[in-house]
Nucleic acid binder design. Structure first.
Length: 276
DNA sequence: AGGGGTACCTGCGGGC
DNA sequence: TGCCCGCAGGTACCCC
């Protein structure tokens, strides 16, 4: 579920509630076997109790909570994870973890499918998930030339290349589909076939769409899996042009949108507007 | 190297 | 009504 705009929204909303407050304890439900590292809730809890979160950062879809003793909690929401803040203990069927602060506030992790992870590390540089991460899609450090170069040295199609977090960090299925539609590129096009000019335009569209999605607090689909930290729906769903529109008319040319399976995921495109 | 499949989970909607 | 199937904003791991 959550891609860059959703993770960004959640962290921005949480920040004022969780920064610089002493942590009292960590609670993990018995179901959360794969959820945390270290695996022992007691171990995890004792290592962070008394500490404060002094900074929150996002790398792609990863969330990093920096503690005041230089430990970091690295979180990933995967498909259905949510984070909320509550001033009181929250009862919820799918709440698998919370951090209780000394002021009695709670940071809650809710996750229906239980794919999400929270890892406590002392050296962020050794964390595998971040080592393999490419430059963040919204980072000014990412240039069209670099992206073009990465496309030149792979034989992947552009759909898989954009989903590859080592190529560009932060995009997921919704925004990749929207980016390719906006750029008139078919998902199955080989990434290396794109000209530098086309990559420039693609990167412009990626950033425009991500920023617009952030301004709408992300995208919530019909199943309501994603809700922001305040429990609200992300209103960018109103702006989706191609994702989940199979069989519906293209907004530009009225041709019916097609769906193809690529690597067990659904790619949507307009067969007339998107060339390749 | 990259494609494809599976696995990790729960829940929902559609078809029969 | 109920069962079975496919599908879901992600990623890691296997085999060819």
């Amino acid at each position: 579920m959550p891609e860059l705009p959703e993770v960004h929204t959640i962290l921005k909303q949480l920040e004022p509630h969780i920064l610089n407050k002493p942590i009292q304890e960590l609670y993990v439900s018995v179901k959360g076997q794969r959820l945390i590292k270290p695996r022992s809730p007691g171990d995890f809890s004792s290592k962070i109790s008394g500490r404060k979160i002094i900074m929150v950062k996002r790398y792609g879809k990863f969330m990093v909570f920096l503690l005041d003793n230089e430990q970091q909690i690295i979180g990933h929401l995967r498909m259905s994870g949510r984070l909320t803040y509550s001033p009181k203990l929250l009862k919820h069927k799918h709440k698998h973890l919370h951090i209780k602060f000394a002021d009695n506030g709670y940071l809650n992790f809710i996750d229906v499918r239980r794919f999400g992870t929270f890892h406590l590390v002392s050296n962020i540089g050794n964390y595998q998930g971040l080592q393999n991460l490419g430059i963040d899609a919204l980072s000014p450090a990412l240039s069209a030339e670099e992206l073009y170069w990465k496309f030149q040295v792979t034989s992947k199609n552009i759909y898989k290349a954009l989903l590859d977090q080592a190529v560009i960090a932060g995009l997921g299925n919704i925004y990749v589909n929207e980016d390719l539609y906006a750029s008139s590129i078919r998902p199955i096009t080989k990434a290396r076939k794109l000209s530098l000019q086309e990559v420039r335009q693609l990167l412009v569209n990626i950033r425009l769409i991500l920023k617009a999605a952030i301004s709408f607090k992300g995208t919530t689909l019909l199943d309501k899996t994603y809700l922001d930290s305040a429990g609200d729906t992300g209103k960018f769903y109103k702006r989706l042009r191609v994702y989940d529109r199979e069989g519906k008319p293209c907004y530009k040319c009225k041709t019916l949108i097609k769906r193809v399976r690529i690597a067990n995921r659904s790619a949507f495109y307009c067969p007339k507007c998107q060339k390749g």
